[in-house]
Amino acid sequence: MRIHALGDTALLAELGTRLDTALNTRAIALAAALKKRRDVRQAIAGYASVTVHFDPEQATPDSLGAAIKRLAAKRPPMAEPGRLHRIPVIYRGPDLEEVAEKLKLTPQRVAEIHSRPIYRVFLVGFVPGWAYMGPLPEELELQRRHVPRTLVPAGSVAIAGRQTGIYPLPSPGGWHLIGSTSVKLFLPDRDPPCLFRAGDRVKFFASTT
């Protein structure tokens, strides 16, 4: 594990560099364990890392770094299977035809492959309610769009690399839009204000409404 300074009040602990469910499970468990410490203000799991915001009056980067290594060496508690969300998708996104063409598949087949796996929510972040999900089947792997869109509608279901996601708010975006859902991901009047949490599982199914 490598631990880096992120300024004078945060550390980035890297558990690995691969998109991997086991690494992500360890990162989520480590973040949960760190949050219980008095010198830790906030611990956020990334794909394979934990960003730890600490109280510099109670910890030094060295003392906290050592504690992070000790905690990471412990066997994490058995992770419970995450909550399962079933999400209806209308597979009629503006990029569906182009994606199908590039992958030498039919649009119908892209939808079938996309809705086959149960995806894992690796982390929630970037913008409110956005969830990085994967791994996407290799058959659908594509680089991001060369020119990002300046405005992607909320509810757009998108793919890029080995990841899939849903735009929770209208925002710029460079992923390929293959469908849309009416499910709201950003719930500003709930706490936490988002539908998905890190570690949750998501199953898409084709819908006409």
Partner: peptide, 10 residues
């Protein structure tokens, strides 16, 4: 890089 948590000042 795989996405990770950020901080103000980064």
């Amino acid at each position: 890089l795989l996405s990770f948590g950020l901080a103000a000042g980064a």
